[in-house]
């Protein structure tokens, strides 16, 4: 019985390895502070060195995604590493990333006019081992293009975040995880006046070998915090109370 379980575990590990999940070296297996979302990923670890895809169909969604990614970058870049932000239509104001603890002076912003150039730069950046992460804002990403990006990260171990804006032709890609971040109204503590912490509805639409799900997260005290369902206030409640 014991032997059988070991065998199955070994096989599962092998499958993960074949699917491109590399076991991180012992010093690196730190969590990114996403709490229970990390449990949704295979092995219970937020995968680095893969492509994460974020769907944004409206400006407020992309603002929410930018904030969420900035929170992730603050962890990924914490060893003084640099990061690249490539876009053909950048909206994010660099200094604002400070609010999520990400150092904008260590992010290289590359704004190009042509989408084709942007994708070329993304691929080159994903091949660059000296970068901690690459954030790319593109409008479309085909299967072939995503495959090229995946091949690039497999060699270098850079984490890629692709923000997509194409609501219509939502093609399938081979990204490891597909996220949708939507903004939620913030809630003040104990009915105090003013604004609360920024809050998102984080949906994992697709995770390779993992469990998709939906969570409510907020950025509190320079880290992610999960908002438990009982204290969650829906938009309708908020309107009623307001």
């Amino acid at each position: 019985m014991e032997a059988k379980r070991e065998l199955i575990e070994k096989l599962q590990q092998d499958i993960l390895l074949w699917q491109g999940f590399k076991a991180l070296p012992s010093g690196h297996s730190k969590s990114v502070g996403l709490g229970s979302i990390e449990k949704a990923f295979p092995g219970g670890v937020f995968p680095r060195g893969v492509i994460h895809e974020f769907l944004n169909f409206s400006p407020e969604h992309s603002a929410a995604s930018d904030g969420f990614i900035a929170g992730l970058l603050s962890v990924l870049m914490n060893e003084g590493a640099a990061c690249a932000w490539i876009s053909s239509c950048r909206k994010v104001y660099p200094a604002s990333l400070k609010a999520f603890n990400a150092d904008p002076e260590r992010i290289i912003f590359m704004d190009v006019e042509l989408e084709k150039d942007a994708l070329w730069i993304v691929e080159e950046a994903l091949k660059t081992e000296g970068l901690a992460a690459v954030v790319a804002e593109v409008s479309t990403l085909s299967l072939v293009e995503s495959r090229r990006l995946q091949l690039a990260v497999e060699k270098s171990g850079v984490t890629g975040f692709i923000l997509r804006r194409d609501a219509k032709g939502l093609s399938s890609t081979i990204a490891t995880a597909r996220w949708r971040i939507t903004p939620l109204p913030s809630e003040t503590e104990d009915g105090l006046p003013g604004l609360g912490f920024p809050r998102w509805n984080v949906e994992l639409l697709k995770v390779r070998s993992g469990m998709p799900g939906s969570w409510t997260m907020e950025w509190a005290a320079d880290q992610f915090a999960e908002v438990k369902p009982q204290q969650k206030m829906t938009a309708i409640d908020y309107r009623r109370s307001g």
């Binding site: 003084g80 590493a81 640099a82 260590r106 290289i108 080159e124 660059t128 000296g130 970068l131 901690a132």
Partner: peptide, 16 residues
């Protein structure tokens, strides 16, 4: 991860 002065990052910028 030496950050912006890393050789590979500088090479990336050259290519871009």
């Amino acid at each position: 991860r030496p950050g912006l002065n890393d050789k590979s990052v500088i090479r990336l910028l050259d290519r871009v």
